[in-house]
Amino acid sequence: MSKEFKIVVLAKQVPDTRNVGKDAMTPEGTVNRAALPAIFNPEDMNALEQALRIKDKFPGSKVLILTMGPFRAAEIIREGYFRGADGGVLLTDRRFAGADTLATSFAISQAVKKMNPDIIVSGRQAIDGDTAQVGPQVAEKMNIPQITYAEEITGLSDNRITVRRRLERGVEVVSSTLPCLITVHATAAPCRPRNAKCVLKYKYSRTIHEEQDAANAGKYLLSADEKPYLKIQEWTVDDVGGDENCYGFAGSPTKVKKIENIVFKAKEAKKLTGSDADVDSLISELMANHEIG
């Protein structure tokens, strides 16, 4: 019998900063955050696919989603279920609030230790911050190797994993001992679509808070006692333990001093048409000013 692996996918719910359209900008030229949809961080999706491929090759392996965020971030875990994940944990607690990457990585590493996986995969970076720091910081806190910029997991045995990395100007193939943390690059294979069977099975999966909200709204729910797999676990600081001073704002060495919204300022621009005469006068002007020559 081949080995069964336990894989934890670190995923984050992020505002979709890639599609800041016209309606997402206020008349003052700043961002209207409410107009941005919350999505599964794109590179975390690539990471999920790598995890699911391990499960395809090594039946019996388990893929678990770990996310940290507000109650509604449970959507990320459900999305993972719909694509083939076997379980998930939502780390949610006001005491996590105000965390920078270091405090975030502490919280996540505490949860991962409790889950005790063979392999941890995550996206290279999240599009709301683009820092790419949490992955390596979790690896350091777990005292395990890290492989960043992964494009494909090309080999896996009982105690070693082989990964092709995408670097600025080429590729590198490396192998590491297990357990190990891998961050996945956008050039990796896209995630498979939702699976209809999984959607049917997990459509009503809920966290305890979602269950309470639904009950308050008078909706009928299958109780988790009937179908325990529908229960999405929520963990707080108390569940993952560790020094409370390492969490949230207190555990964050970096502080935001100032935030400025980017405002588009219309410069005094010369408006031209694409006509021969306009283009010719522009090119002549640039040449006269030695801008081109």
Partner: peptide, 19 residues
């Protein structure tokens, strides 16, 4: 002062590490 764009470049943040 560590100054960087965030949020898809829609804001500019100034970060400090006081301690």
């Amino acid at each position: 002062y560590q100054i960087r764009p965030a949020f898809g470049g829609n804001i500019i943040a100034t970060i400090v590490n006081p301690e």
